Simulated assay, not measured.
Amino acid sequence: MHKSVYHGLYLLGVILLVLPFVVPNSFYLDIAVRMAINAIIVIGLNLLVGFAGQISLGHAGFLGMGAYASAALPTHFGWHPLLAMGAGAVAAGLLAAIVARPIFRLKGNYLAMATLGLGIIISIALRNETQWTGGPDGMPVPAMELLGLEIANDRQWYWVIAVLLLVSVWASLNLIDSPFGRALRALHGSEVASQVVGVNIARYKGAIFIISAMFASIMGSITAHYVGFVSPNFADFFHSIELITMVVIGGMASIWGSVIGAVLLTALPQALATFEGWETVIFGAILMVCMIFLPKGLVPTLAARWSRKG
């Protein structure tokens, strides 16, 4: 990786190290944890949408699969939380593998509708299987254990998720810089040209869809354990749109854009809470302004302007 990339990782590490000591109370620490969780999910989604150019409007369905695996398997069958998390990730990966080939034969609006339908099917299944999932009311999630120790408070969760964020950013930057990542970017540029130079389009599309789905499932499990409760809202359509919006605002095909987009859109509703009754209108207006003046996303646009000045 380029030296500047390592500089970015070092800076992120310093910020994560200092942050819990400067936030004024547990409320802000909770927001920081949620920012980091969303950042990891959005990184996985951006690998699929931004780098490979494959839209997904049902990604929260995989998030819900992981969350409910971590709730239902320990509750009903006594599974260890880590084993349940792994089972959820495997299930999400298998589902992605099964549907990838037929779905990714589609393009544009048809692909968007197919992924939307997949997410809706998962959401309905989780909502209707009342005996296993608690139905619309949701269900509690047992505490997470690591090495025999229970992760019980916000500060402990912060350190776990901060490490996961650093590892996710590092792994994703390496992935994009690898031959696999270059093949993904070639797919985004032109599928026909990619095929001419020997890229197996179906295999690469399927592989990145599986990776992205497993990313989401694992973080769904982490979120469920952190919150201590899971409901069908984890997997609903609006959550998928929220995640896509984070990708677009931060910057398509930008790992750092994923982090910035997740941070901004997690914090923004809290910042607008004082505008009682108008927060949704203001939120929408801010998104419109960003899309008009920053069409490529915040990080790529600012980086391009900075390079021109340099």
Rank of each mutant, 00 (worst) to 15 (best):
W132Y: 15
P136K: 00
I161V: 12
F180K: 00
V141W: 15
V169L: 07
T133M: 09
I176Q: 02
G181S: 09
P140E: 14
P179H: 12
R182T: 02
P140G: 10
N153I: 15
D177S: 15
E150C: 03
D154M: 09
W132Q: 00
V169E: 08
L164W: 13
R155G: 01
W132K: 00
V163G: 01
W157M: 02
D137Q: 07
G135S: 05
G138M: 05
W132F: 15
P136A: 04
L173N: 03
A162Q: 11
P142H: 09
P179Y: 08
G181P: 02
V167P: 11
W170C: 02
M139Y: 15
V160H: 06
M139L: 06
N153D: 11
V163P: 00
V163A: 13
V167W: 13
Y158A: 02
S168D: 07
L166W: 06
W157Q: 01
A171F: 14
Y158K: 11
G148S: 12
G148M: 13
W170A: 09
L166M: 12
L166Y: 05
L164Q: 06
G134V: 09
L175N: 10
W159M: 13
F180W: 11
S172L: 07
S172A: 14
G135A: 02
D154H: 14
W132M: 05
D137S: 06
I161A: 02
V163S: 04
A183K: 06
P140W: 15
G138D: 09
L175R: 03
A183W: 01
V160M: 11
P136H: 01
I151A: 02
V160L: 15
G148I: 10
L175Y: 12
V141C: 02
M139D: 13
L147N: 08
P140S: 15
V163L: 14
V167F: 15
L165T: 03
L147R: 00
V169D: 04
F180C: 00
D137I: 06
S178G: 04
V163H: 00
G148W: 08
I176C: 08
Y158I: 04
Q156R: 00
M139N: 09
I151Y: 14
D137H: 03
L165A: 02
